[in-house]
Write a protein that binds this DNA or RNA. Structure first.
Lengths: 338, 338
DNA sequence: TTGTAGGCGTTATCAG
DNA sequence: CTGATAACGCCTACAA
């Protein structure tokens, strides 16, 4: 392990000078010394020790990506096929900016606090946070926090989100335009201030606009694991009063399609299905899934830019970015007007 | 930030004593002091500063999960739907053992070295490493390295793998038993000492055992992105000399099925398809995909156990774990004997 | 049973 | 232009 001291000795200067050169505080160092030092750094293979830096500067270059494990749910953030798509993007962008990514699952608020203190974490990403005690804790932090896919807002906190309401509206409206009136809404638990809630609102409003009465009996909330979603599909198959299903996630939609098929239904002939996210899966199902597209890598990138700006204390016009969605028409929806 | 010093002052003892209590070196501390210290720790909310510890102890509790970006490929580890499945498992197990996970993509060997030195990284996970300069670098490290899904071995390095040969053999054998003789093999580039190579060997040997001549023209190597895999399916559709396809990854198999279908082929009536991995997707395609199952979370867990043992300097009987595979029969393969 | 002191690698402050 | 020196929080001999 080459240290600053080693470089200093090799060149015959003090640690201070070396440190200054490393940090480009080159104003008061002779050009000659600079090259000498840089050569030594190359030759001896000096690499900064981040722990030492963190210790002395109270900035660690560590960014945490937090997965908040509520209650009994055992799955962590990376297991969600959609979220995992932008973690790669986040790591990349972070790296390009000289930061390091720690993945961490926390169960309680104090788990989080401990983690933060352990490493002097500089900033945080969290997904799927709701209005609860955990969120309250987040707002009290003195480090920048970027929430992804959350509908809780606070002056201390940035949000990177999606036109979820629009997504829900667009999807439902599309089904209505195709002549559907009996449209089921399938999703994980609809929590207030959550993404799903917004999409639900979009669904409801599209219905309302078309003067289609909202029916509670067409709302299906359940977990996203394959077995459950397939089961839901089977359940839906016996309902005579449904011509279309809008699922708020592609994996959910795909599971429903599988269940429907297993129950002998044809898609879209017997029943139409729409998804949300536009993950690869949409092009692999049969029929291919019509869905609402969102750009996961871009989301990750923007989240990082946001965090970087906050870390640089740049004044931000607002603390929210909303990414657009658009509909991708494939084969899983049938027009009733034929 | 409460420090050890604060605790010491609060209780009226020295830092040493506090440190000793924290580390359970309780042999030479009075019971009374111990409780006093523990109370203070609770009350003042002391959390160890890992940077400081790392600095002084040359062990950082940081474990790196390395994604090696070869050449022009831009995708990182977490974007692979299969690999991402066990990162969650790795983080969890690591956390339970007091370690922290840093995700990092490196392009060159020196990227890796820098990262390692930056944080005094205690141990490493890498996936998909081949016999190359990067691997050579790995073998020279003084920290434990656990390779996942790699067929390069070295005394300094641990491997967590799969019965890949067996998987290839079992899949092919299954197809043969169903009466297939013209079996295509689809995979990413077959690199020597890679997982895919082993599966390929299994394929070849199953053929040989059944006295079916190996034909180079039935081997298809390409990228795993959706567009390419679908394209391959279409390509396969026009080949009259193929009755079955064995794909070394479910995403590949699913893409092929989609392409086949788009070209008007029925699965498994016209052509049978087998996958590998048994990800959720297998139950969502139509028909559901017959595949070779492997246990991703277990793989992650075992990888961590391996690393922990190495870090504890436990003598290991051998530096390799091979997880078993088994065939999962679904609907994508047709018997030719009907 | 407990305390003192030195040092890990770095940066910042303040002199020269 | 450059160099001591202290400090960050922690651990570990060694002393007491």
């Amino acid at each position: 392990m080459t240290t600053i001291k080693d470089i200093a000795q090799a060149v015959g200067v003090s640690c201070t000078t070396v440190s200054n050169v490393i940090h480009g505080k080159t104003g008061r160092v002779s050009a000659e010394t600079i090259t000498l030092i840089n050569e030594a750094i190359d030759k001896l293979g000096y690499v900064p020790n981040m722990s030492a830096r963190a210790l002395v500067s109270s900035s660690s270059k560590v960014i945490g990506m937090i997965s908040h494990l509520t209650s009994n749910k055992k799955e962590s953030i990376v297991e969600d096929p959609f979220h995992s798509a932008f973690i790669g993007s986040i790591e990349k962008t972070l790296r390009e900016n000289g930061y390091y990514l720690m993945l961490r699952t926390v169960e309680t608020t104090s788990d989080l606090m401990n983690f933060l203190h352990n490493w002097n974490v500089d900033g945080l990403f969290c997904t799927g946070v709701f209005q609860d005690e955990f969120f309250e804790a987040l707002t009290t932090l003195k480090i920048p926090v970027v929430l992804i896919d959350s509908y809780v807002s606070h002056p201390n906190i940035c949000n990177v989100g999606l036109e979820d309401y629009d997504g829900g509206y667009t999807a439902t409206r599309y089904l209505i335009d195709k002549g559907h009136k009996d449209i089921a809404f399938a999703s994980p638990t609809i929590k207030e201030k959550g993404v799903v809630y917004e999409r639900f609102l979009g669904y409801k409003n599209a219905l309302k606009e078309a003067s289609i009465p909202f029916r509670k009996s067409l709302i299906f909330e359940q977990e996203l694991d394959t077995a459950t979603t397939v089961e839901l599909g089977k359940q839906l198959a016996v309902r005579k009063d449904i011509t279309a299903v809008f699922a708020t996630a592609d994996i959910l939609a795909a599971g429903i399609m599988a269940g429907l098929r297993q129950a002998g239904k044809m898609i879209p002939e017997d029943i139409s299905v729409m998804g949300f996210d536009d993950i690869n899966l949409c092009q692999l199902t049969s029929p291919m899934l019509t869905t609402i597209h969102q750009d996961a890598p871009l989301k990750g990138k923007l989240a990082v830019y946001f965090l970087m700006d906050k870390l640089d204390n740049k004044p931000l016009p607002n603390n929210e970015v909303i990414l657009p969605i658009h509909l991708v028409e494939r084969e899983s929806v049938k027009s009733l007007y034929n």
